[in-house]
Simulated assay, not measured.
Amino acid sequence: MAKVAPTSTAPDPADEATSGAAFRHRTLAQQRSRDRLERILGVASELIAAKGSDAIKMGEVAEMAKISIGSLYQYFPDKSAIIRALAERISAASRQCIEQALAGVRDLDGFLAAFAGLVDQYYAIFLAEPVMRDIWSATQADKQLRALELEESRACAVLLTKIMTRLHPGVAPEKIAASALLIWQLGEATMRLAISVDRAEGDALVEAYKRMTLRELAQP
C-alpha cells in the first residue's frame, strides 16, 4: 500500500508576508483617515471661532484641510454634521472632567467644594474657547444638537444623583433626581448668559448660580 505523505501545517512564508503587508496597509490607511478627520475638525474649529458657524462653508473647510470636497463629504454630509461632531467631542471631554472632579468625593463638604471648583473650571474653559460659545449657539437651532445636549445633561445629572443619594439617604430619590437634572440645565443656561455679557457681570452670574446650587446640593 502506498504511503500518503503527511499534510504540512507549517505556514507558508509567502502567505505570512502577504498577510503582514495587508495588515500594515490597513493600519496606515486607518491612521491617514484619523489624521484627515482631525485636520477637518481642527480647521472647522478655527473657522467657527473666527467667523461663527453660520458663515463657514464646506468648500472653505475642504480647502483649508487640503482635501477635495468629495473627500470631505465622505466624512461629513453637511456643515451640521461637523458641528455635531465637535459638540459630541466637547460633551465627552466635559463628562470626563466632571467624572474626575467628583470621583474623590467622600462627604458633603468635599462634594460642595468639588462642585464649586467644577463650575469655575467649566466657566474658564468656555471663556478661553470661543468655538464652544458658537457651538452652543448652533445647538439652539438644531434639533439633533438640542437632543444631544439634553442627553448629556441627563447623563451628568445621574452622576450628581448618585452622590446626592449617598449623602442624603433620607431624601426621596425622585426628588434628588429632579434637582440634579435642573441644576445641570440651569448650569448650561447660566454659562450661555455669562459669556454673552461683559466679564464682570458674567462672573457675578456664575457666582450667583454657585450660591443657589450649593444650597440645593447641601439640602435638597
Rank of each mutant, 00 (worst) to 15 (best):
I90D: 10
M164N: 04
T27L: 15
A65H: 12
E216M: 12
P169R: 14
T190I: 06
A116I: 05
L127C: 14
A93F: 01
V105K: 02
A172R: 10
A189I: 04
G202M: 06
I176H: 03
A101D: 03
A17F: 07
R95I: 00
V206P: 04
G187L: 01
C156V: 10
A128E: 11
L193G: 01
R95A: 06
R26D: 13
I135G: 07
I195S: 01
G202T: 02
A85G: 08
A55D: 14
G104N: 09
E201P: 06
G117D: 11
T9D: 06
Y209L: 13
A44V: 04
S45G: 11
L193N: 03
D203P: 03
E63N: 11
P169G: 09
A85E: 15
I195P: 00
Q140M: 08
R89Y: 06
I83S: 12
D134T: 03
E151C: 06
E60M: 06
T27K: 13
I67C: 04
K66I: 02
R215F: 09
G42V: 02
R89A: 12
W184G: 01
P173N: 02
D35A: 14
P6I: 02
A10M: 10
Q219I: 01
L127S: 13
I135V: 14
R39E: 14
V43H: 10
F76T: 07
A157Q: 05
V206L: 11
P173S: 03
E174P: 00
L72F: 03
A5Y: 08
D12S: 12
A22N: 09
L205N: 06
A128M: 03
I183R: 08
G202Y: 07
Q31Y: 03
C156E: 15
A5R: 13
P130H: 02
L205R: 09
G187T: 07
V158I: 09
L112H: 01
